[in-house]
Every structure is written in structure tokens, then in C-alpha cells.
Design a protein around this nucleic acid. Structure first.
Lengths: 148, 148
DNA sequence: GAGCTAATTGAAAATCATTCTCATTTAACA
DNA sequence: TGTTAAATGAGAATGATTTTCAATTAGCTC
């Protein structure tokens, strides 16, 4: 099978898959490749198209299965758009937030956590225990800001 | 028509609707009532059921239309759950974040913005302009933490 | 309060997204 | 190279959301 798209990100995915006893199929590696090289957030359909471009044919169900699994493994992150749409972005590393360009859907990592040093006093006063958070920034990348 | 559920939140919605030249229908006010009195995040189906409980019969399309519109008006906020599910929460006021109990789906407002004072230097260095953000906290409310 | 009008609703069909099933294929390892 | 459990593909099934259009209604005006 074609593996001419192998690069750092595919190796990274391979390793995580092997650690968990999961198979590194061409479909899975193609999903990583498509997401990573696009550099932006893609819909399920766009990912499907991208993978079909590499492998010729691929079942849509496989894309769904792969994305769900990759999300659990922390390889991709699901993003939510104000219009209700969803996108997936490659997400190497554990705790990364994303900044999304609303024009080109470009995704840019954001290593510092904006919420990390936040004082949860007002919430904790009510008895809550904060366990996790979802943070996503919206804006414009340099290119799109200039074009506007 | 039954309006015995009128209270502060319904008046609030009425006012916003009137400002925008939109009609305060019983269906719309019932959606506000259901969401507000539940105190938690509800799915579209749960909201539909709640409204049917008040009005007898209501079209599902109306619920969808109302929620979309209320989201634009800032009356409700769409929440996203790790499992992919979506929920809607009543959201009086402009810039409120939410903390959601993963057990009971209870929603608690969070007036301080965790992102407000964050230093966007690393992102701005790349030429980005941050325009908006989505922040959602997950955890356990007092009740559910004790029950666990 | 009755009439007018544009906005809104309801019901069902249409569309779109996601999951499931099961026979076939394949990656990983011996 | 053979074995085997995991993964895939194709399409059916399910579920979520949107659209359509005739009927209804809220918000005016008088």
C-alpha cells in the first residue's frame, strides 16, 4: 500500500496506536496526513474526500470510526463553530487549545492554557469541582485580516 | 392562551424580541420557561417535550427555529459535550460562560471570563486577531460530587 | 374589540449526518 | 507464510435538522 505520505505526524500516530494495541491502517494514517497537511479544520466530508484522494476509495464509516478513536487518543480535536458546524483538527500533544480563523478555518495551536491560572473561587464557592474545560478562540489569521 | 408561566425570564425574552421587532409567541416563551426552570442543559428533544407539556402540541421545527434565533439573540447558549452531544441552556446576559455538571447536566453561570485577562502575545506574534472565544467548564456540582 | 398584515407555526416530506451490520480484507505477530 | 483478531466497505438503518407551504396568530390600527 502507498505509504509515500509518511512523515513525523504519521509516525507519531503509529506510535500511539501501537501503544494501545491498535492497528496502523492506511486509512488511519491517511486521515492523519490529510488533517495535518491541510493545516486547518476540516469537516468529516472534507476529510473523507481527502482520504479518497490518497487511497482511491474509502468508506465514510471508517472516517467516522477513525475520528472518534483519534479524538479519544488525543490525536485530533473536534472544534465547534458558531454556525453549528463541526470540524476536526490535527492535535499533536496533550493539552493544546486552538485558535481558528473564521475566514479560512485555519487552525493554530495555542500551547498556553488561558484557563490554567484562572481563579475558580466563585464557582468553587458554590461547591463545584472543575474537572475539564473546552476553550476555543476565534479570529482572523494574518492573511485573512489583510485580505478583508 | 396560557401565560401562567410568565416570570422575569419571560419578560426579559419578550423585551428582546420586541426590540428586534419579533413576535413573542407562546411557543417562544414556553421554550424560555422550560429552559430556565430546568436549570440545566437540555437537548432539543427534551425542550420539545417540555414545551409540549405546557402547550399540548408543538412542532419540532418550531423548536429548532426558536433555538437558532434565541442563540443569535443571546437568550440561549449552545453547549457541547465531550461525547458529541449538544445541549441548550438559558443564558440571560451578554457575556456569560457556563460550567456544566457532567453527571446531572446542571448549568451554572460563570460571570467572570477566564480568558479576559489572558495574554494573547504568542498568538498575536503570529499575526492573529482574536475576535471571540468559546469557553465551557466541565465538572461536578456539589450534589453529584457527594453522590459519587 | 374587530380587522388587517406580515410573521410564525405545524405537519410532513426532504435532506443531511451518523451509526450499524456483516461479509470480506488486512496488519501484526509468530 | 500462516494465523487471527481487528478493521474495513457498502449500503441499510437510524437519527437529526431543514424545508415547504397552507393555516394560524401577534401586534398593530382604528
Amino acid at each position: 500500500m502507498k505509504k509515500d505520505f509518511e512523515c513525523t505526524q504519521e509516525s507519531y500516530a503509529r506510535e500511539i496506536l501501537r501503544e494501545k494495541g491498535l492497528k496502523s491502517t492506511v486509512q488511519r494514517l491517511a486521515v492523519v496526513h490529510v488533517l495535518h497537511t491541510s493545516g486547518k479544520s476540516l469537516s468529516v466530508g472534507e476529510i473523507h474526500d481527502g482520504v479518497k484522494g490518497i487511497l482511491g476509495t474509502t468508506g465514510l464509516a471508517t472516517i467516522y470510526r477513525t475520528l472518534e478513536m483519534f479524538e479519544d487518543l488525543g490525536i485530533v480535536k473536534r472544534l465547534h463553530f458558531p454556525d453549528g458546524g463541526r470540524g476536526y483538527a490535527f492535535s499533536q500533544g496533550d493539552h493544546v487549545h486552538h485558535m481558528v480563523c473564521v475566514d479560512c478555518k485555519g487552525v493554530f495551536d495555542f500551547p498556553e492554557c488561558p484557563v490554567e491560572n484562572f481563579d475558580y473561587a466563585s464557582v468553587e464557592k458554590q461547591g463545584f469541582i472543575v474537572r475539564d474545560h473546552f476553550v476555543q478562540l476565534f479570529g482572523q489569521c494574518e492573511k485573512c485580516a489583510e485580505a478583508a
